[in-house]
């Protein structure tokens, strides 16, 4: 076997490479997350973790299961397309435990957010100048937020 004569140092070197390769495989097995590469170059389990984040806005369908009476009022009025939590804020905790009372709302802030006059808003959107429109009288004196058109003979 003249071919392998005096090649012992090369075998030792090759053996080191083989050992290093297996060490790499073992380390890789423990370091790379289980689901990495399941769908692509990322950890597939992350999708489930993100999907498990807690919800804060319950969604109007949830509200409507209990508050069907308000839904009937709202459906007939101009605010039919406005979801509950657009004004009432996130109420998933109230939906999960009805004993948690939703915070009281301030119409002076809420109505103005959408309906304060501005040339930037779409022309057809109902807008008022808060100072001239009511002179400080609270909005709900005339307008019921769930169906805001003035009911008795007034302008819409």
């Amino acid at each position: 076997m003249s071919l392998f004569k005096d090649a012992g140092h090369l075998f030792r070197f090759a053996f080191l490479f083989v050992v290093a390769f297996f060490v790499f495989l073992v380390v890789r097995h423990f370091v790379v997350p289980k689901t990495f590469g399941e769908y692509g170059h990322y950890r597939a389990a992350a999708i489930g973790e993100i999907a498990a984040h807690p919800i804060h806005f319950a969604g109007h369908e949830t509200c409507e299961t209990c508050h069907a009476d308000i839904l009937d009022v709202k459906k007939a009025g101009k605010h039919a397309g406005v979801n509950c939590e657009a004004c009432h804020g996130p109420l998933a905790n109230h939906a999960n435990d009805p004993s948690i009372a939703p915070p009281k709302l301030d119409t002076a802030v809420l109505c103005i957010r959408c309906h304060a006059v501005s040339a930037a808003k779409p022309k057809g959107f109902p807008q008022i100048d808060p100072a001239q429109h009511s002179g400080g009288v609270p909005c709900e004196t005339c307008h019921q937020p769930h169906s805001p058109a003035i009911q008795t003979g007034g302008a819409k």
Partner: peptide, 11 residues
């Protein structure tokens, strides 16, 4: 459910 922004968008 829809997204929070879509849920809260009044228009």
């Amino acid at each position: 459910l829809t997204t929070a922004c879509c849920e809260a968008c009044p228009t």
